[in-house]
Simulated assay, not measured.
Amino acid sequence: MKITKNIIYVLVLALTIYSCDNEYDKEVILNETASLEGTIELVGGDISAPGERKGFLVTLPEAFDKKAQLTVKAVGKDFTETMAIVDMSAGATSAEGTIVMPDVSLNTFDKVEDYAYLQIVGIATGDDVTDADGDTTFVNDPNDNVRVTSNTVSVSFFQQVQAGYADSTIAGRMTVLFDWANPGANDLDMYMFSSGFAQVENSGSGSRYEQDIFNDTHPDGTYFVAIDFYTASGDIPWKLFFVHPDQITVSYFEGVFEGAASGDFVYPVVNFTKMTDADGVVSYVFEQP
């Protein structure tokens, strides 16, 4: 009798273990996800400023037969965050997008290295569905079980690289921002000339930052930036920021005006060339002499 009870106990224990193992196996299978290692890289350089747009390129190791939406996050040193979603067409493995940088308060003339980093943090696959009113909405596939991770890329911040223009105002146009140290004691003004010394732009606000939009009606050719020292004394570090017509690429130059004095006029500080290709696309090349 005792032997029989022991046999029954062993059989019940074996069935219990088998049952638990089966349930565990089912749970793993139901929740299994596919993990992808994507990559992200910056487009248009690695500098930006609070609230400005930064371009990026995301790439996946394989394509989907459905549309994919990737979520990119930007995180600042103070842990502020912004998000952006970029669409990737079915069959594609890469896509470009832009993200607005965290809008933090900075008070500095110098660059803050690696202020924020970007990373791919999510993905959804599905289809665009159009309703009766013609509105299109992305609908996530309920069977979507893909998870994505990626490398991180760093963005360095300046306090400002461009004035707060409306998007419609600067679309397709290049902007310039000039900054210099100790603006309370030094009042500098910015001018732009053609290679034939015809003045085409100027900015003289009397305060920190001189900024301008380079008019898109200016003809192709070579131009330069000149600086007028309305009030100045001693060595003055300076910086020039050129935001290209795509509004994400930034060309940046810096230097020191040594022994500056009121009434001085310095040129060329930076030379640049405007070019238009056969498709009407405008581009600029910059050079510090």
Rank of each mutant, 00 (worst) to 15 (best):
K5V: 11
N6L: 10
I7W: 02
I8G: 07
I8A: 14
I8P: 04
V12A: 08
A14F: 15
T16S: 12
I29Y: 07
N31V: 01
E32R: 09
T33P: 05
A34I: 07
A34Y: 04
S35I: 11
I40T: 09
E41I: 04
S48Q: 04
K54N: 09
T59Y: 06
T59F: 03
L60T: 12
E62H: 01
L70K: 00
V72H: 10
A74P: 09
G76C: 06
K77N: 11
D78W: 01
F79M: 08
M83G: 05
A90R: 08
A95C: 08
E96L: 06
T98E: 08
D103T: 12
V104T: 02
L106M: 09
L106A: 04
K111M: 14
D114T: 10
Q119P: 01
V121I: 11
G122H: 03
A124F: 07
T125V: 13
D127Q: 08
D131E: 15
A132H: 12
G134N: 15
D135L: 15
F138E: 13
V139H: 08
N140E: 13
D141R: 11
D141S: 13
P142G: 13
P142T: 10
N143I: 07
V148I: 05
T152R: 14
T152H: 02
V155M: 03
S156P: 15
Y165V: 03
Y165L: 07
A166D: 08
D167L: 06
S168L: 06
T169Y: 08
I170G: 00
I170E: 00
R173Q: 12
Y191E: 12
Y191D: 09
Y191C: 12
F193A: 03
S194M: 01
S194D: 06
F197N: 08
V200L: 02
N202P: 02
S205K: 15
S205T: 10
G206C: 12
R208T: 04
Y209L: 02
D212A: 15
I213N: 00
N215W: 03
T222M: 06
A226N: 02
F229N: 08
Y230K: 14
Y230I: 12
Y230N: 10
T231F: 00
D235R: 13
W238M: 06
F242E: 03
V243G: 01
Q247Y: 08
I248Q: 03
S251M: 04
S251R: 01
Y252F: 00
G255Q: 07
G255A: 04
G259V: 13
V269M: 10
F272D: 09
K274L: 15
A278Y: 07
G280H: 04
G280K: 01
G280T: 02
S283K: 10
V285S: 14
E287S: 12
E287R: 02
